[in-house]
Design a protein around this nucleic acid. Structure first.
Lengths: 344, 344
DNA sequence: CTGAAAGCGCTTACAG
DNA sequence: CTGAAAGCGCTTACAG
């Protein structure tokens, strides 16, 4: 008993290496190395013997040392802007699930929409020798990041927001088409005065939506009234603030197209605050189809932007790019889908 | 121009090392090494010169090689069961935020409540030489994992669910007290027939809740009716299934205490399905206070289990344990808090 | 399969 | 501050 205890103590000080395993099993280090890497060149009995030694000694493979020597990597990074936004958690789920199945370990970075943090996280990940990075850029992206991405040797996949000139693979959703379907749906329901609420008006994803919004109105012969286009932070709080501003006007809209589901929840709350019933007095359409949209009351009509699929696709693109660094850049734009529910 | 291009190409093949930087700046490798590590022993001018060389050569620090040599680690792992559950995304946020501020890079693992996946993720993380791991165990934890944790050299912090005998630091919430306050609140509101719905009845977190539920009823002199205690998957779907079962009975309860907010959302949906109004016909109390609880309609009365704070605390415990491996194990149980809203 | 050697990119330790 | 050497734990390449 004493001896077992002592032995364990020793291990805790000096971790056992492949060398130790080889000696214990009476084989060479090279053989042991082949075995941890599942080489088929090793005779089954030798293999068994060595695995037994590993078990006995409590050997743990040092993947970091292996990666260093073989100049490979088994980690990848995913950088999102906000972890509390279920759009991003769904996306993260898609990325994580796919990459882990392939055998990568994922490093998570969260920028909280800060350019500085994004820069810093990118550096840290690359210093950690990730094999590649999936980047969902912050909304206020500068030229600096584009220049940086062009220089980076590590494969980078952009998701959600594009960075013009960055020369990376890209996956996103057709926000313009999505906004257009949302507004066309409202027009079809008989609405003529339709507000567009929320979102950061400098971001590319907002600009795409306003294009779709404008196009739908235009095609229906409805003039755009800029007083009912109000931007905000892309959050629930932002939606509440914006809708308060909207409801303080005289000529109220009969329908609101919201930048995102998150904004829509804030908008609904603001509408209730004003004594109106969302979905009845004012129709609401969101964007993203986050899981909450379906279970909200009233359930939210929205445009699905397929967060999880976006993540999956980004993961696949990254894997392809890692395996095949020289291939031509891909640009995948998913088609959104209108989910009609009770709020419109 | 040609030359610049050629130069860049070369870099892409052979990454520049500290050796290259030292040569370029005319200093020794040791000096360069001290500079990347921000040693104060270096004269400012030397430092500046070397940093300039790094800039020019496009040097990127290889933290992995550095960690290997110095037997240190700058990564930590966090293992959660479900990324779509906002309880866990809030917890993850707390962990991530805290650890990143200290300077760790975080590896994310998601078990989807599978014992095998949990085992495998733990192995992968340790093979990646993480400095420590925060583990939110799967609900069906076996003795095997406990035995394994006892052997692992890497610091492990348990969060949310405890594993008896694992001998790790632990942080969680007092589920029993939380359940008790929830039920006492309902009793105070005049309810006498109170159901307990949802959750996996084998899990320690369910058992704690049933204890609190029973205690509150007992103290009020109300007998427990097992026909209105129905377990389920700890999800929205689980809540719907369970409440359907409940509503098919004759003697309906006037209030429902739900295992979690997620379950509560399913319960509310099930109640609406049956033509009743949640919060009016049947009072509902949830557990966790996830962000959606507040914005739901009707807003959900619930017990806050402080997900983000739990994550922050776990992160702090982990850091302490890494810095101070020999200290005594800590056990931090946060006090829950009742959030009264419209659903009760 | 073995064995001895070299090397991945860094840090450590030490004499000068 | 420099310089030369050793080493972290692994893989690679090669002669046997």
């Amino acid at each position: 008993m004493m001896q077992v205890g002592d032995f364990t103590m020793k291990q805790s000080k000096k971790p056992v290496t492949l060398q130790d395993v080889a000696k214990h099993a009476g084989v060479s280090r090279a053989t042991a190395s082949l075995i941890v890497r599942n080489s088929p060149k090793i005779a089954p009995e030798t293999r068994k013997k060595v695995l037994k030694s590993m078990e006995e000694l409590g050997y743990v493979y040092d993947r970091v040392a292996a990666n260093l020597r073989s100049k490979s990597s088994t980690t990848v990074g995913i950088i999102i802007t906000d972890i509390s936004n279920t759009y991003y958690s769904e996306l993260l789920k898609g990325v994580h699930h796919t990459l882990e199945k392939i055998g990568y370990t994922v490093l998570l970075g969260v920028t909280f929409d800060s350019v500085e943090k994004q820069d810093q996280i990118l550096s840290t990940m690359i210093e950690h020798r990730v094999g590649g990075v999936i980047l969902c850029p912050v909304s206020e992206s500068s030229d600096a990041i584009v220049n940086r991405l062009k220089k980076i040797q590590t494969p980078i996949i952009l998701a959600v927001r594009e960075l013009a000139g960055a020369n990376c693979d890209f996956v996103s959703v057709d926000y313009k088409a999505g906004a257009q379907m949302a507004v066309e749906h409202l027009i079809q329901k008989g609405h003529k005065r339709i507000a567009f609420i929320g979102g950061y008006s400098k971001s590319s994803t907002w600009i795409k939506r306003i294009e779709g919004y404008s196009l739908a109105l235009q095609q229906a012969g409805i003039e755009i009234d800029e007083s009912i286009v109000i931007d905000s932070l892309p959050t629930r709080e932002g939606g509440m603030d914006a809708v308060r501003q909207l409801l303080s006007q005289r000529n109220l809209p009969t329908a609101i197209f919201c930048f995102s589901d998150l904004v829509a929840f804030g908008v609904m709350q603001g509408i209730r605050e004003a004594g109106l019933t969302p979905g009845k007095d004012i129709a609401i359409v969101g964007f993203d189809n986050i899981p909450e949209a379906e279970i909200f009351y009233p359930s939210l009509t929205t445009v699905s932007s397929f967060a999880e699929l976006t993540g999956k696709t980004a993961a696949k693109l990254l894997h392809e790019r890692i395996v095949h660094p020289e291939g031509e850049n891909q640009r995948i734009i998913l088609n959104p889908e209108l989910m009609v529910r009770d709020s419109s």
